[in-house]
Design a protein around this nucleic acid. Structure first.
Length: 792
RNA sequence: GCCCGAGUGGCGAAAUGGCAGACGCACAGGACUUAAAAUCCUGAGGAGGCAACUCCGUGCCGGUUCGAGUCCGGCCUCGGGCACCA
């Protein structure tokens, strides 16, 4: 299809770049300014890369190709996030060892990435499954353990019965397993947690430093879920229980209290209730429900009143009924709430269903208790509330908190939805947790001399039915000695979640072979923060939060200088299948880069994934539109025989393309180059201009531009030249066409000198044919170099 | 329910409040060719007119402005995130 042999050309330049180690950067050179560009390292699955990966990588590939020509010392690394369930499941299915599968997949990914001509620093590849890498993943865990940030606790956790693993909150959003999609259940288990919650506020504050779009910021803010309110005691039968509320101003509207079915106090209180059987039956029913049913069920509220028992509102001294209802979760707040049906939709639903009283305490415009009782009237005035009457909501909140504090029955509390990170998986293909359990000393971390704790190479990796890790079957490995007392002890047999290795990999790239520490301090001094991190939107509430948490911790213990790991974060849009649906094997709409490269070449693929649409928005693949890029490359190639004199200007293109690449506007950068080429066919192009064109196109289509640079007999190699500056060797036109409007509508245009005054432009207009329409001018609007508008 | 995005030709899409539809696909016409493909050139939002030109047009309804795809208010639709979070 193309007029040249792109296969030979692309192979030739890829070999040259590899031989020259063009993507290689060293830590010693400090003459040039540094630039650290990072793409999310891929999970090397058996399916290979799809064109979506290409788009994800290509954005920063284009940027870094430009940055190198601009004189930056560019770090642009790649690696492999290779532990995890998909590989393990694939290995089980095909009866291979995950190590073998992983190595095959990495080799295949590497082949694909190189065939696209990506200029990564291949000498810095990291692989999270290699012992010299996970040594430091384990080391970080040990540091957290020593600082009390890793703890084992017997709690209710999300569990996927199909994958046989405990899942973090982040891994089962919406009550479904992130890996297999089956509905998760709640199970009692011994689970390791990381206290990421301790960092909730820092994770929130750190977002202010992060340069990213509002969506990326907002999703993290929502996930952290900060709320400010009051934790307040109620009393019942000589006991106290605390509720958490963000609306203390509505305290006089409390008509009942709700305890979660799992609330420990329920076990005590039910003894005193006249309907103990009914309560026990209700709790039993709740346990049968899955988290999924509880959250997304019918939204019909169920519950049971503790008959004969009243709670005392310690602020109002009113007595209110207590109910047990599963619309209150044990896992948030205190597991107990005060019910204010007049000002909370859920309480309203429940009160209506159970005929509970409803008292309005905030007066607002148009409040209709029978219909919109649950509307929050944040700007209303407090009524029916004794000492709060007449206050604004804000003042009443403060007054109630003050009252609670001075009477020692409550305190202002900040709460977060973010939960501690459930950190172990009962599967083989992950980092072993470097902890032994000693009957005398309890949990003991392995000292650094014993790291890495290597993952035993075993053939039987089938997860046992008892919910244990396959490692539990290795008695020789499990039975060990306590590093502290030397007595008999057992190893922890669970492994870490896939997110562990990816939480700090950006640091390892700086000094991938350092065996003294996880990152060499001189290397860190050079590279510091990641300047620009691009990845998927789907990782914003997980990997991004996790890795920021890790970095905050490493900052705290003095390993890294910056609290925040990334200065700037962007997210590419998905490439959808040609049918407009998300690409997936089951839909059969996956496009492989291999076939596109074979048919059109890497340059065309790169151009097309950059041209397909707004980089941050999803775009459907189109097998017909790609020929536009094929033609474009061919036209650039054919132009080499048409060099001579020309009247085009390339200055605007140089400035525009440079700006567009820095602003994620790859599609318009390419369209500007296309426009320039079209003009060159019309008006001719000089060799100097053509060489600038090659430079501007080089980040997108490096192979063919290198070739053309050579064909044209230019000095050296294109990849070693400098990025073009506007105005060099070219006279700039000082004329500009500005539109002439009459009554706000464009009626013509005049050519004027840049910077012409209103008088000068008016004179031009009056000298044109438009003057006949301008007999009675009432008003004139003039914007320099932009427009002149006459109101007649 | 709450929080973000987004709605522009047949399609993918462009437009610091200043020529709407750049660029590309598909389409039509022409050149080249014995012919086709490829390539090159031209055309093209809709309606009307031989034409110069006129009117209408960026999801809907209002508003601000000399001027609105863009800003403001109110809706509708689609996509994404969170979610009995108290």
């Amino acid at each position: 299809m193309a007029s040249f042999d792109f296969k030979t050309i692309e192979k030739k330049w890829q070999d040259i770049w590899q031989e020259q180690a063009l993507g290689h950067v060293n830590n010693e050179n400090n003459k040039k300014p540094k630039y650290y560009a990072l793409v999310e390292f891929p999970y090397p699955s058996g399916d290979g890369l799809h064109v979506g990966h290409m788009r994800a990588f290509c954005g920063l590939e284009v940027l870094t190709r430009m940055k190198r020509l601009q004189g930056f010392d560019v770090l642009f690394p790649i690696g492999w996030d290779a532990f995890g369930l998909p590989t393990e499941n694939f290995a089980l299915k095909t009866k291979q060892h995950p190590r073998v599968v992983t190595d095959q997949n990495i080799a295949n990914f590497l082949r694909q990435i190189k065939s696209a001509g990506f200029l990564f620093d291949y000498g810095r590849q990291v692989d999270t499954t290699q012992a010299d890498y996970y040594k430091w993943t384990q080391w970080i865990f040990v540091q957290m353990f020593e600082k009390g940030l890793a703890y084992k606790s017997n709690t209710t956790v999300n569990f996927c019965e199909s994958c046989k693993v405990v899942l973090a909150n982040e891994d089962c959003q919406g009550g479904k397993c992130d890996r297999c999609g089956s509905i998760t259940v709640q199970k009692e288990k011994q689970v390791w947690f990381l206290k990421i919650r301790n960092y909730a506020e820092k994770l929130l504050q750190g977002l202010e430093q992060l340069d990213c779009n509002s969506r990326i910021k907002q999703e993290q803010i929502n996930w952290i879920g900060k709320s400010e309110g009051l934790q307040l005691d109620f009393s019942v039968l000589g006991n106290k229980f605390a509720v958490y509320t963000t609306r203390p101003d509505t305290i006089f509207g409390v008509t009942f209290c709700v305890l979660a079915p799992e609330h420990p106090l329920v076990q005590t209180l039910k003894q005193y209730a006249s309907n103990i059987k009914e309560i026990e039956e209700y709790i039993k029913q709740c346990k049968l429900k899955t988290e999924f049913e509880r959250i997304s069920g019918t939204q019909v509220k169920t519950g049971v009143v503790l008959q004969g028992i009243k709670a005392v509102n310690l602020i109002t001294n009113q007595q209110v009924p207590i109910v047990v209802a599963d619309y209150v979760m044990m896992s948030y707040g205190t597991g107990a709430i005060m019910g204010v049906p007049a000002h909370d939709k859920r309480d309203w639903d429940f009160a209506k269903a159970y005929n509970l009283e409803c008292v309005q305490v905030v007066d607002g415009d148009g409040v209709d208790l029978s219909q919109a009782a649950f509307d929050d009237i944040e700007n209303g005035i407090i009524i029916n509330s004794n000492f709060l009457n007449g206050m604004t909501v804000e003042n009443a909140k403060k007054a109630v908190i003050d009252f609670a504090v001075s009477n020692n029955i409550g305190f202002a509390k900040v709460d977060y939805k973010l939960k501690d990170w459930a950190f172990n998986r009962q599967r083989y293909w992950g980092e072993p947790i470097p902890i032994v359990e000693c009957p005398k000393c309890g949990h003991v971390a392995l000292p650094i001399q014993q790291l890495p704790l290597k993952l035993p190479y075993i053939d039987d990796i089938i997860p046992p039915e008892d919910g244990q890790s396959p490692l539990a079957k290795l008695h020789e490995w499990v039975n060990t000695t306590c590093p502290k007392c030397g007595g008999k002890a057992k190893r922890e047999t669970d492994t870490m979640p896939q997110w562990a290795g990816s939480s700090w990999y950006f640091l390892r790239y700086m000094s991938p072979n350092c065996d003294k520490s996880l990152v060499d301090s001189q290397a860190y001094d050079k590279w510091g923060q990641v300047d620009w991190y691009n990845g998927g939107m789907e990782h914003v509430t997980r990997h991004l939060i996790y890795s920021r948490f890790y970095n905050l911790f490493l900052h705290e213990i003095g390993v890294v200088k910056y609290a925040e790991p990334y200065a700037k974060r962007t997210a590419q849009g998905l490439i959808l299948g040609e049918d407009g649906e998300k690409m997936s094997k089951s839909r059969g709409n996956v496009v492989s880069p291999d076939s596109i490269i074979a048919q059109y070449g890497a340059d065309v693929l790169r151009l097309f994934v950059m041209f397909i649409g707004d980089y941050e928005k999803p775009a459907p693949w189109s097998s017909s539109s790609i020929v536009g890029c094929v033609r474009f490359v061919s036209r650039v190639y054919a132009l080499k025989d048409k060099l001579g004199s020309g009247s085009i200007s390339i200055n605007a293109t140089i400035a525009g393309v440079t700006q567009d690449i820095e602003n994620l506007k790859y599609n318009t950068a390419i369209s500007k180059l296309m426009t320039l080429v079209n003009e060159a066919y019309q008006s001719g192009i000089t060799k100097i201009q053509y060489c600038d064109l090659l430079k501007l196109l080089y980040p997108f289509a490096p192979h063919i531009t290198e070739e053309l640079w050579q064909i044209c007999g230019c000095d050296g190699q294109l990849s070693n030249t400098e990025w073009p500056q506007p105005n060099h060797g070219e006279s700039i036109s000082n004329m500009i066409d500005i539109p002439v409007q009459i009554n706000g509508k464009v009626r013509g245009r005049v050519s004027v000198e840049i910077g012409s005054t209103q008088t000068q432009v008016r004179a031009k207009v009056m000298a044109s044919t438009l003057s006949s329409q301008l007999t009675s001018i009432k008003k004139e609007i003039f914007v320099i170099d932009k427009i002149i508008n006459f109101i007649v």
